[in-house]
Design a protein around this nucleic acid. Structure first.
Length: 430
RNA sequence: GGAAAGGUGGCAGAGCGGUUGAAUGCGUCGGUUUCGAAAACCGAUAUGCCCGCAAGGGUAUCGGGGGUUCGAAUCCCCCCCUUUCCGCCA
């Protein structure tokens, strides 16, 4: 959520920021509504002060056995009714304004390139090179089933389209990636590992920015008023809701592996073959709660934590800096990591690293305090490190061999009992 | 799911219709004392919003929401959470 006080003092900055995102926002209307709310608030509080003073006087008079008590009560009652009426008016106006604020996106940082859509994104780094094959590389939807490690048909049987089963060494490889990611983050990058709920209160989704605007993008359990998380970002970012953290504890760096559930409404048909876009996938996420002064630099550090994983897996990838028109609703600056998929001849997003400035902190009420200072909103950052299915796709496709087998990158071998190569497993291909 | 007991400031824990934003203790911070420290003593110590240059003032908040009342942490209703017991169960 944006800072209303800031909107008041520099409306033009916000106008420009919204325009850069391609959003038309009626700033003047917002300011007028804000003005109205403030006026109502002032009136309501003034009236309430009068009621409180009258009540206090009645209490004193009653104790002294005054005679005018009944008369004073009637007067106070009338005053109280008026105060209540104005307060209800104030409440309605305040709610309406709040709803309008909740659908406003976060202004992007000044250095973010201005652009209309994905075509305005810039490639800012590229690592490795496209692997050269002496044969026609296969796509994972051929490779996986042939190796008996991926099963789309049976997933469809139990859950419909948009799901995948991993099997045997496929399942084990996925588990190895998760464990290795978490181990690197906790042992080398200073993160603390969490296991968190996969079902959360809708309010958490407001905190991170998915609600109220993107309500059709995730699964909801209406009977229990809970939603399935679309990313670990949601439960992890909301962990410290309502708390005031001591400044010296920052940055808090958390990592969590969770499944992620996404309806992908409206995405049917585009790039949905195989497991590039599925309704359920695993992901290791990293989240920072940090100070405003360091957050911009922290984003690069966080991005590095995701990149090093791809490097050690020997996977060719590139880094995209998203332009204003393609940056997500809550983010102020985003880098996407895209890994090369030779089988589909395309780049696949395996990580999105973002700084949210104080946007989520305002929504989720995340604050910190310097010693002796006032509480202030902290900054949140997060990134995938990394998303499993697309890592798996790139790994299989980039490391595939002429005979259809796949070589296992060295860091993962200890997690696979020393396995160096995945070959067809006759025992489970039935 | 059933029964019971609870949810009060950073923590512990009083308060159960009238200057109670809330006793007391602990913790924390500042001061006195000390060569220094401990102890002791003195003082300070919630958050949001509004008005104000400030000092300060106002308002709201005692799990959440509604109600009764001139006035609610205190009374009533609904919901949530915690603990214990029973049931069920990985």
């Amino acid at each position: 959520m944006i800072d209303l006080a800031a909107l008041r003092t520099e409306p033009d900055r916000f106008r420009a920021a919204f325009a850069a995102r391609g959003e038309s926002v009626e700033v003047a209307g917002l300011l007028a509504a804000d003005e109205q709310v403030r006026a109502l608030k002032h009136r309501a509080e003034t009236l309430r002060a009068e009621v409180n003073a009258a009540s206090k006087a009645i209490g004193q008079a009653a104790r002294q056995g005054g005679s005018a008590v009944e008369e004073a009560k009637a007067k106070a009652r009338a005053l109280g009714d008026e105060a209540k009426r104005v307060d209800e008016e104030r409440d309605a106006a305040e709610r309406a304004l709040h709803e309008r604020l909740l659908v406003l996106p976060n202004p992007c940082l000044a250095e973010v390139p201005v652009g209309k859509d994905a075509t305005g994104n810039r490639v800012v780094a590229e690592w490795g090179a496209k692997p050269a094959f002496g044969f026609a590389p296969k796509a994972h939807w051929d490779l996986g089933p042939a190796l008996g490690i991926m099963d789309f048909d049976r997933a469809a049987k139990v859950a419909g389209s948009g799901f995948v089963c991993l099997r045997g060494n496929g399942a084990r490889l996925s588990r190895a990636l998760i464990s290795w990611f978490l181990d690197v983050h906790t042992a080398e990058h200073g993160y603390q590992e969490w296991q968190v709920p996969y079902l959360v209160h809708p309010q958490c989704m407001v905190g991170t920015g998915q609600l109220p605007k993107f309500h059709d993008q995730f699964y909801a359990c209406k009977a229990d008023d809970l939603v399935l998380i679309p990313t670990a970002e949601v439960p992890v970012t909301n962990l410290h809701t309502g708390e005031i953290l001591e400044a010296e504890t920052l940055p808090l760096k958390y990592t969590a592996h969770t499944p992620c559930f996404r309806r992908e409404a409206g995405a049917a048909g585009i790039g949905t073959r195989g497991m590039t876009r599925v309704h359920q996938f695993d992901k290791v996420e990293v989240v920072w709660f940090t100070r405003p002064e360091t957050s911009a630099a922290d984003l690069l550090t966080l991005r590095g934590h995701a990149e090093v994983l791809l490097q050690r897996l020997g996977l060719h990838y590139r880094v995209l800096e998203l332009c204003t028109g393609d940056t997500g609703f809550a983010s102020a600056h985003t880098y996407d990591l895209e890994v090369w998929s030779p089988g589909t001849n395309s780049w696949l997003e395996v990580s999105s690293c973002s700084i949210f400035t104080d946007f989520q902190a305002r929504r989720a009420n995340l604050r910190f305090r310097e010693k002796g200072g006032k509480p202030q909103f902290l900054h949140t950052l997060n990134g995938s490190a990394l998303a499993l299915p697309r890592c798996l796709i790139a790994l299989l496709e980039q490391h595939q061999q002429a005979d259809g087998s796949v070589s296992v990158p060295a860091p993962l071998r200890p997690y696979l009992g020393g396995l160096e190569r995945i070959t067809g497993n006759a025992a489970v291909t039935g």
